[in-house]
Structures are given as structure tokens and as C-alpha cells.
Design a protein around this nucleic acid. Structure first.
Lengths: 351, 351
DNA sequence: TTGAAAGCGCTAACAT
DNA sequence: ATGTTAGCGCTTTCAA
């Protein structure tokens, strides 16, 4: 058993309250007593119990960031933004996975009031749970859906407009049979991107397919499988707008495997501009947005928690690379910038 | 104020212990009472206080993983290995950054007994702190240094042999003036890699430079700057063995900027086989090791904590790519595998 | 400036 | 099967 504050008090010959004050740098303790306490604490290897302190103070000074996949290519910049703002507020950050359903760490922490606020990205946490647990003492910011409720805030991106820009780009390059490579239809991001896709087709007087023929999860294998199926059905479009970059990369893999050229035969645009998108071949044309800002702003919102819901929408931007056949090749200078950005030289990452 | 177990007891008309038992699925509670309690809890939106439970039970069923850089390219596979084993033991995992010195979240969690065990990777946590806090009730596994002490275990890799293999490879390809691009000299990994480098030179009767001329931190910019300096001094070697891949990539960037060809003029080998190493151009020849295993084994060690120190050493393997001029080009099939591995299709990642 | 004591919300031993 | 109660280790009010 490790020493408690009581043991320290006994050894130092003072009351427990005195030890508490001394250890927390209260001004009302004399220098001499403080030294005495510190020496006793040192001698006993005293380590305060966070659980006891949290219980008493009814807060943990910790913010939780809950993600689907801790190691995923998408999140690292978001995490940095969050980390920086949390630290500058003198708080702790814990990152944990939402993987595992009801028994995931994320669910447990959310339910058990372990953290004083949460940033959630990942559909594994249900809307109803979020609305249930959000409160004045527990603000929540959600990054991947529009969820309205007291003490629930949103940071979103211009999904619809981004998708519109992506598809318009394809149309400008002369493509006319453009398929949407869809993520899960329940995903909020996905449906807005689908809306933007339809609007672009409509405004350019192109027929809107009455059903999406390609589905998948938001992962590389999802894009791969969907496109494999499409190839088997021999109904290839001349362009694909993928709901995210991972799927786009899977699509490229599937096309390559069948000897179909990208962009010559089929052009591809993705969404998100993840770190390897500039590096794959052909480098992926995509819709970029600032993930660092997203994390930083979300965290600000947690600290400035107000009851009334707040919705912040960040802009997106088309990044033209090779997968639509616009540029001829990857320049060395581009290449260096890309590698640097992945390894995030220096402090804050660029988008 | 949110409801406590007392409120639930009152509403349900039972004792607090009954509520506690009911909520924890004790068998000694009748079905009817249980239902009554559950209904009352629901009605009050009761959420148990983790802090109170942890205080009482004197454990949190949580393992902490402490890393230098949450978003870094190196860690994602380690995290997966840890995550999987932690979850399979029914525990929670929190990942947090060691960034910020004494006031970092990692330091606070380590000191305040928030977690029941820790896996540490990153020099920001001092040896003395680790030795101080490690105990039977708080085992620690360290991944990047050999640290001996009770309840402190190590998972390491064959750093020296890996470096030896890397440098021997360069020598076999006919290179003779081989520089070591060093990371921080205080880093344990770095010094072992330096040892392996020297042994390879010695065994092949090549002169060992009496000082390292290139230093840097373990980041891309460190490699870049060191090589820039070396170029300025006009003392170029015909090969560079970098202490890690990030530095190797920085070295390549610096060489490219000066029009020096890799591998024709200068061959490069790295260490770690991070996810973008196969993708940069030229694809990086490097020393690979299994990061997933590292995380998984480390976590096993936390759960099987025994007093006597345990040291596990994982093997490394040379992966030949383009940066030493061995292979002529990147094959399409390689390329697909690479992209898949970065996006980690499916569950467990390959090395 | 220091001490005594109440209690944060829960678990679990013990009593019924 | 359910109730009573004593703490877990700390902070903080109040008294001295």
C-alpha cells in the first residue's frame, strides 16, 4: 500500500489539512511547515490519489477525445489541435477508442463522468447517449454530425459545397458519367457529400442516377470492394467521386488490378485530403479541410461551453493533383512539401 | 447536480447497497428489485461516479499508454497492439501525450495513480520517475530503453544487430565511406544503433570515424538540417545510415535539394520501417520490426506483472527497397501492398 | 497559521 | 434478499 496524506501528516507531525494545503501551495502555510511536509512526503514516496481528489472536487480537469480509430490516417492533425488547446488551458487530455460498442472505454468514460468534457468523432457513440450525458458540467462537441441539444456543439465542414466543387471539377474536365462511391448512408458526412454531388450534376444538366450503385464503409477496403463489383458488372463510369480519400484509394487499387487506367479511363476525386493522398500514384485530387483547426476550435468550444448549441462550419477547398488528369506529373517541389507535411516538420501542421 | 446512488435508492425505496448490487448485476438481488432500481436510475438519468468507484475499489481498470507524439507516423501500429490486448482483458485504455514536461498529462496520471499500469514510450518520462512510481499495484513497461527495476519491464528490439545488418548491406553494395546520421546521443536506441554501425565497419575493415559528424533529433527536420550542413562542408560520404526513418527521409530531402542523387551518389538506409518509408521516392531501404507485436507484448507484460524485471527483445529485419540502389523500381504489386498496409485494411496490420 | 471534522459517491463486510 | 454502516483519500469549511 502506498502512503496516504494521513501518513504524511503523521510523519510531519501536522494535521492532514495542513498537508493538503502545503502540497497545493496554499499561501497560508508557513515556509517551515511546508518544508517539513514536503520532506515527509518525499520520504514516504507519497503520491496523491487522483480518484480521491476528483471525487472531492467533483472534476477531473481532463478532457476526453473519443475516436473510432486511434491510429487512423485521418486523425493525427485533429488530435494535435485538441492537444494544444487542452494543454494551454492547463487540462489533461485522454484519447481513447470508441471501438467495442457498449463496453468500449469511450462509453465507460462518458457514462462515468471521468472527464469534464468530451470531443467525439465517430459514429460508434449514439446521438441519444450524447444528448443524455451532455450537461452544464459536461459539454460535448461532436465533429462528424449535426446534433442539436443543450451543451452539445458541432464543428462541421462545408461537406455539400466541397462535394459540389469536386464533381464540378470532374465535369469541367469533360467527364459526364460520374458515379458516387458512397460511404455508409447513415453517415452524416456521406449524405451531405451525396447532396453536393447531385447538385453539381443537376446544375450542369447531367442525369442524376436514381440510385447509388456503389456502397462501402469509409475505409480503403470498402472502396476497393465496391469498385470491384462495379467492374464485374461492366458498367464503368468515366469518373468516380468517392465519399472519402480512403475509399478513393481503394477504388484506385481495384481499377489498377483490372488494368483500368486512372485518370485516363476513370478519373477519381476523394474527400478529406489525408496525409497519404498526395503520395499515392496517381496523387489524389481531393477536397481538403483544416483538421488542426477543427480540433482546436472544438476544444475551445468545450472550454467555453454554453447551453445554447453552437455550430461552426469550416471551409473546404479543392486540391488538384493527378487522379483527374489535370496535372501531368508530381513535381519534386510538391513532393518534398508532401513528405514534410506527413512527418509534420515543426510545430503546427499545415493542411 | 446529477443524481447519486442515494437518490436512486430513495426513489426506488431500497437501500444504497441494494442499488449498488443491482447496478453491478449481483446475483443476490431479486429480479423485481433489480427492475425497480433500474427504472429509478433511468428516470433520474443516473450515471455512476467513476471517481468514487475507483477510490473505493482502489483501481481504475485502466491502462495508460504514454507517447511523445500522439499523431506520429511511428506509433499507430503500437497503439493497435496495445488496444487489442487491453480490451481483451476488459480494461480501458487511455492514450496520452508526454509533451509538456512536469505538467504534462502523462506526468500527472503517472503520479496520481489514475491508471493501474503504464506503457511508456518516449524519453520525456525520466528513468527516476518510472522507478519511483512502479510497484506491485502499478507495473510499468518501457519500450524504448533498458531500464531495470522492480515491476519495470522492457520490450526492446535488436537495435545493434539491425544497425549492423543495415550497414553491412551498404558495404556489400560497395559503399565504403558511410556516415552515421545520429539521433540524440542520450537516446538508448540511438546509441545501440551506433554500436551496430561501428561493428559492421570494423568487421569489414573499414575505418571508423572518430566522431559522428551528423546529429539531429529523431525527426525529419533533424535529418534534413544535419545533411544540409554536411553538404555545405563538401565532405559527402557515399552512404548514410540514419538512426531512424524520419531522419533518413529528411536526409533524402536535403540531398535532393542540392541535386545530389539517391542512391547513385549517396545511398541511404533508415531504421524502423514507418508507414511512408515504402512510399517515398526512392523507397527507403530500412530495418523493419513488428510494432504491433511490440504493443501487444508490452501489454501482456503489464497484465502479468511480476516483480522481477523482464526483458523481451524482438527481432529486426532488413527490408531492401530503392534507396541503396539494389532494386530497379517499385513494382505495382509492392505498391498496392504498401497502400493497403498504410490504410491497414482489415484488422491487424502487417509489419 | 494550523487543526478538527464533515463529506464527495461509491463498495462490501456484516447484520438481519 | 435487503439494509446498515464503515470507510476509500482527499478538500475545504469552520473553529481555534
Amino acid at each position: 500500500m502506498s502512503a496516504t496524506i494521513k501518513d504524511v501528516a503523521k510523519l510531519a507531525g501536522v494535521a492532514v489539512s495542513t498537508v493538503s494545503y502545503a502540497l497545493n501551495n496554499s499561501t497560508k502555510i508557513s515556509e517551515e511547515t511546508k518544508r517539513k511536509v514536503l520532506r515527509a512526503a518525499e520520504e514516504l514516496c507519497f503520491r496523491p490519489s487522483g480518484a480521491a481528489r476528483n471525487l472531492k472536487k467533483r472534476k477531473s480537469e481532463t478532457i476526453g477525445l473519443f475516436l473510432n480509430d486511434l491510429g487512423g490516417p485521418f486523425y493525427s492533425q485533429v488530435i494535435e489541435g485538441v492537444q494544444e488547446v487542452v494543454a494551454s488551458n492547463g487540462y489533461n487530455l485522454i484519447v481513447c477508442s470508441t471501438y467495442g460498442g457498449e463496453n468500449s472505454s469511450a462509453h465507460r468514460f462518458l457514462r462515468e463522468q471521468f472527464v469534464d468534457g468530451a470531443i467525439i468523432m465517430g459514429t460508434a457513440i449514439s446521438d441519444s447517449l450524447i444528448l443524455q450525458v451532455a450537461s452544464e458540467s459536461f459539454p460535448i462537441v461532436v465533429l462528424d454530425r449535426a446534433l442539436r441539444g443543450d451543451y452539445v456543439h458541432n464543428v462541421l465542414i462545408t461537406n455539400e459545397q466541397g462535394a459540389y466543387d469536386a464533381v464540378s471539377h470532374l465535369i469541367k474536365l469533360g467527364r459526364s458519367k460520374i458515379e458516387f462511391l458512397s460511404g455508409p448512408t447513415v453517415a452524416f458526412d456521406n449524405s451531405l457529400r451525396f447532396d453536393g454531388y447531385k447538385r453539381a450534376l443537376m446544375e450542369h444538366n447531367l442525369p442524376i442516377p436514381n440510385k447509388i450503385s456503389m456502397f462501402g464503409r469509409f475505409v480503403e477496403a470498402g472502396g476497393y470492394q465496391a469498385v470491384k463489383l462495379m467492374i464485374a458488372s461492366k458498367q464503368l463510369p468515366d469518373a468516380i467521386f468517392a465519399a472519402n480519400d480512403e475509399m478513393a484509394i481503394g477504388a484506385i487499387r481495384a481499377l489498377h488490378e483490372s488494368g483500368i487506367r486512372v485518370p485516363e479511363d476513370v478519373a477519381i476525386v476523394g474527400f478529406d485530403n489525408i496525409n497519404i493522398s498526395p503520395i499515392i500514384r496517381p496523387a489524389l485530387t481531393t477536397i481538403s479541410h483544416s483538421k488542426y483547426e477543427m480540433g482546436a476550435i472544438a476544444t475551445q468550444l468545450v472550454f467555453n461551453a454554453r447551453k445554447h448549441e453552437n455550430e461552426i462550419i469550416l471551409p473546404t477547398q479543392l486540391v488538384v493533383r493527378q487522379s483527374c488528369g489535370y496535372k501531368d506529373g508530381l513535381q519534386e517541389t510538391d513532393y518534398d512539401a508532401i513528405v514534410a507535411s506527413i512527418l509534420h516538420v515543426g510545430g503546427r501542421k499545415q493542411n
